[in-house]
Design a protein around this nucleic acid. Structure first.
Lengths: 261, 261
DNA sequence: CGACCATCTTGACTCAGATCAATGTTCGAT
DNA sequence: ATCGAACATTGATCTGAGTCAAGATGGTCG
């Protein structure tokens, strides 16, 4: 069990201690006190049911940047909720290349790809100091048979992941490089908003290479796009720090296809 | 209830009556008699449990080519198992373009994208005469709380769909047009093999346009690829009829990346 | 503080696959 | 058997993003 430093919340300086979010104020961690609650838990659970769920969840040591939460082919036994920080998942292809599958922020669940075959189909690594909650899948399954709304919630989470993946498929299949980067920025923005953080100013925890890999582009192209967006007054960039200056126009860039209307 | 013509099975001439597969020999249809059983059902269910599941499943009228099983935004209430024929799912993007998300063959389950938001996120249409089993999701959820292995099976099915989608993401993000088409052909081949059909000779039920759309390529490119593969002795094509001449070499084409090793 | 290695940016050039255009083929309806 | 519309093929040309190469910037560690 890790005792976290008590921190006062200043909305700036967010990068340094990424453990703030999702930590209970009293230093002990329980779902009922978690600031992320509404995002990762089913709303429908009663307070007593939340405690039942709480009992099966384990809090893990924070991961340092670059540390792995799990690796491809590892035996699957749990899914994980990101509590603070950021995770990227990736897969190594037959010919040895890395394919980045997703970036995950606090309140989001990862590892569900392992359920199918009993082993993880991707690796998960921390992009910065990150803490997670481990949710043992066997126990979750048992609990789900007693709490129908929990079962439903997990079906929904998985379904949402399918929907998300299909959006990415469309993005990769039909969109220009500009549309892809705009879509990623808007996605990060929206997920920030959901956690009551700024939807216009944030730090991208991943490298340009990761962004390119995820979007099916090269580093050089990603870099040129940031420059272009910046010149066009869509945003300002200072390394990983991004400020979106015109969300509506960015949405327009994301949706207008250069191909036939 | 539809009375199907009794058909003798000749392995050729498979196209004409697509209702053969998955039909019980006695003309009545039950999971326990279904020729697809092992593919779409959890193996672990006892015979009695299969009957419980059977009771909640409804067999629907066959769909004609081009008919919709469901449409985007329709209220979600069931998932569907393809019994015979073939289905394509697609999504209309903000700017009005069609994005083909998948092709589904007998024994495969579709509609799981609707669980998350209560509405379907894609439309499903028949590529040829197709029959399906409707599995009401509410009832499935209830039954799952009593049959843990059924719950587990559905978690697995959904997880597999996530894994499949992520493979497609990698394909779209990292592969050349040759790799993409080779991968699709191998996928169809493998799914045929699973149903004890030929893995080298089959009919592609979808149009070249659909293939291109699914793979993120234009019709013209798909057409040129078929010509090229044919010239290279990888396969023969006669319109929708395909014969794979060299699976190993096709696998090689699918995996060798023109980019840096 | 400075040296080193990662990461990022920018420029010049290339090429796979898109686009445009025209012709050929298939198949269902009459 | 014939017609027409949808589907498929082929060729010529164009272009967005990849590749290759060279610097610039930034973070880390002695």
């Amino acid at each position: 069990m890790v005792a976290h430093k008590a921190m006062t919340h200043t909305s700036k300086d967010a990068d340094k201690d990424t453990l703030r979010e999702g930590c209970a104020k009293d230093g002990f961690e329980h779902c009922r006190n978690c600031l992320l609650g509404a995002i990762c838990l089913p709303i429908a659970l009663t307070s007593k049911d939340v405690d039942l769920l709480d009992n099966i969840i384990e809090r893990k040591h924070p991961l340092q940047r670059g540390e792995h939460l799990y690796r491809e082919k590892d035996h699957f036994s749990a899914v994980y909720a990101v509590r603070s920080g950021a995770i990227k998942t990736y897969h190594i292809t037959d010919d040895g290349q890395e394919q980045v599958n997703g970036f995950f922020f606090p309140g989001e669940i990862i590892g569900m790809d392992g359920i199918g075959c009993g082993r993880f189909c991707s690796s998960a690594t921390a992009l910065e100091t990150t803490s997670v909650c481990e949710i043992p899948f066997e126990k979750l399954g048992e609990l789900s048979t007693r709490l129908p709304s929990l079962q439903r919630h997990f079906f929904q989470l998985m379904s949402q992941e399918i929907t998300e993946d299909q959006k990415l498929i469309t993005l990769l299949s039909k969109s220009s490089s500009e549309q892809r980067l705009a879509a990623l920025l808007l996605s990060v923005s929206a997920r920030n908003a959901r956690r009551n953080l700024s939807e216009t100013r944030f730090r991208l925890p991943m490298s340009r290479t990761d962004i390119g890999n995820y979007l099916g582009l090269t580093v050089e192209t990603v870099s040129r796009l940031f420059t272009r967006f910046s010149h066009n007054g869509l945003l300002t960039v200072d390394n990983k720090e991004v400020a979106l200056l015109d969300l509506d126009r960015l949405r327009h860039v994301a949706s207008v296809n250069r191909y036939k209307a």
